[in-house]
Computed example of a mutant assay.
Amino acid sequence: MGLLSFIKDVGEKLFGASEAQAATVDELKKELDKHGLNAEGLDIQVNGDKVTVSGEAASTEDAEKIALALGNTVGVAQVDNQLSAKQASPDAKMYTVQKGDNLWKIAEAQYGAGQGAKHTVIFEANKPMLSHPDKIYPGQVLRIPPLN
């Protein structure tokens, strides 16, 4: 899946994390559990501000969500997503939220003019990390799934 970049001073603050260092593997696994993402059988390694995750996820969507849940935490600048998926599907694009963005505006930019109503697709693709469509923040990385 590849290397994803994050802004390491934004995101969920986990115990033991700082802007210079990602949280421990145990804390990152707790973060995955909090979002209902299965960390069982995954190999997660932390090296400073880089997290590497490998193993097998149930689907491409789960693999992407796992990488985003790990990366959208304070102290993580990169996630090397080496996960494979039992059920493969087309990869989503990743988008870093900018100041002034909202999901409607992102949908218009990513899917084309007149497609703002597709913001619900982006919201659903980022659950459970997003709890409400209005709760996004600059620097957060979101999944933008392809439209069927």
Rank of each mutant, 00 (worst) to 15 (best):
L37R: 08
L3I: 10
F15H: 05
L68A: 12
K99V: 15
K135H: 09
F123Q: 05
G114P: 07
F15S: 13
L28G: 05
S54E: 10
A85P: 07
V141N: 10
K105F: 05
A107C: 09
E108D: 12
W104Y: 15
D33I: 04
K118F: 06
N126T: 05
L28C: 04
L103M: 09
A17S: 15
E31N: 12
K99I: 12
G41S: 13
I66Y: 02
A109Q: 15
S5D: 00
A92S: 15
A63G: 08
N38P: 00
K127N: 03
G112F: 13
A63P: 01
A88L: 07
G112T: 03
A107T: 11
N148S: 11
E108C: 04
K99P: 11
K118C: 03
G55L: 09
H119M: 14
A92M: 06
T96Y: 02
A58W: 05
V53Q: 08
N38K: 07
E64K: 00
D101C: 12
Y111K: 10
L130Q: 06
G48W: 10
N148R: 13
P138N: 08
I106C: 07
N47L: 03
A57K: 12
G41Q: 07
D43F: 06
M129L: 13
P138D: 02
A88C: 00
G100N: 05
K13S: 11
E64W: 02
A67Q: 13
I66L: 11
V141F: 08
A63C: 01
L68W: 01
I106A: 05
E12Q: 09
A113G: 01
Q87H: 06
P146C: 02
D134V: 09
E124Y: 08
K29A: 02
I44E: 02
V141D: 05
I136W: 04
A58K: 13
D9K: 12
T120N: 14
G11K: 06
A117D: 13
K127G: 03
G11I: 04
G36D: 01
D9I: 03
Y111N: 09
N102D: 14
L42M: 00
D80V: 10
Q115S: 13
G71V: 07
E19M: 00
Q115C: 04
D33E: 14
G71R: 06
Q98F: 01
E12R: 08
G139D: 11
M129I: 09
E64Q: 08
A22G: 09
L28E: 04
Q98T: 00
L68M: 05
K93Y: 04
G112I: 07
A85E: 04
D62V: 08
S5N: 10
L130N: 11
L147Y: 06
G36T: 02
A57F: 14
D33Y: 08
S18M: 09
